[in-house]
Design a protein around this nucleic acid. Structure first.
Lengths: 192, 192
DNA sequence: ACAAAACATTGAACAAGTTCAATAAATGAA
DNA sequence: TTCATTTATTGAACTTGTTCAATGTTTTGT
């Protein structure tokens, strides 16, 4: 459990044992049962979270009631609404556990404390934000250039395990298509 | 000119005059004439740039030869291929001047120097990367949920000046539609 | 083990967006 | 100014994806 976060941190920066302990002590562990929410639209996101067990979906509901999934977060993924968290404004997102899950949470105040007292933490989050930004840029290009068929096959290849755990409705909401159409894509692929 | 960058920095963090001068001295000014490239696919992006005059498009060409525009960068925007720059790998992007333009460039080495010697610079780029990430998340959701009509109207509203300078082909490549279809959208809107 | 709910599939009619080819309009270089 | 190039518009046929409604399948709670 604990090791997952430490490993994740040390993948990006090097910290002394003391710094690591100091930073680690700012996190609180929380269980979130299947179908429960860590964040709902309208709430101000008070945490940044690191998934140590389970699976979450981070999604938006548009004015027509349709869901768009920003990402699924498995073990070792970070979850937050970065806009709501950093700017302390109401969130437009939902964060829901899809399985019984566990997260390590850090509050804004404690994160500020870390920024101010452990300078390398600033680098940690700069580098992590850069990485997620690069991934999102890649996804943006794919969404602009690829058909739903290709995006579905890319998804299976990229997240072979996730794809098993998720419903078609959830995957369709990530790909930006209706679940009925996804069903037809699956049939077409299966028939080959 | 110079003031634009300083203003941009001070919008995010506070620096002493000495720190500011030290950081600023790491930048070199460069002119880029209309239609010339600051970066081409396959090159390793050696710079991070701040636009002080003109307009750039940052785009990708997919395997079918279609262009996808990641963003347009006007005065006070930063331009780089963050993936290529940070990981020193060949870029998948083109960065082209759409007007005679001027940029302030910083090299990777000098940026590392700034990170190591002016700790607040780490914060500057963390905060800026967060902001661009938030904007891209928003765009991702819009692309998943809105029709091309809506996205076009949003674009006009968000970038009223840009929209005047750009061709329909360029705007279509940003919206993720064919320029012919954009033409039909324009007709439809005009007829109201 | 059962009933209710959630999930997946399918077809038919429709809407959104592409492609291709033709034409007109605007821009730019000499 | 002129000629060539780029840019914009349009229509027709086509492809991709949606919507709705019906049906079957799987999960889940008790």
């Amino acid at each position: 459990m604990k090791e997952l976060l430490i490993q994740n941190i040390l993948n990006h920066i090097t910290l002394s044992k003391k710094e690591l302990d100091s930073f680690f002590s700012l996190f609180n562990q929380k269980e979130v049962h299947k179908k429960n929410f860590l964040l709902r639209e309208g709430e101000i996101c008070k945490f940044e979270g690191f998934v140590i067990k389970g699976l979450f979906r981070v999604y938006h509901i548009d004015s027509n009631g349709f869901e768009q999934v920003l990402y699924f977060a498995q073990e070792s993924w970070w979850i937050t609404d970065i806009d709501s968290f950093t700017n302390e404004k109401p969130s437009q997102l939902y964060i829901q556990a899809l399985e019984d899950s566990e997260v390590l949470l850090i509050s804004k105040k404690d994160k500020e404390f870390a920024y101010n007292n452990i300078p390398k933490i600033e680098k940690l989050f700069r580098v992590m934000t850069q990485k997620t930004h690069i991934a999102l840029q890649r996804r943006m290009i794919d969404n602009l250039s690829k058909t739903a068929d290709q995006r579905y096959m890319d998804f299976i290849e990229k997240y072979p395990n996730l794809f098993q755990q998720l419903t078609n409705v959830q995957i369709a909401a990530y790909l930006g298509i209706s679940h009925e159409f996804l069903s037809k894509i699956r049939r077409k692929i299966a028939s080959k």
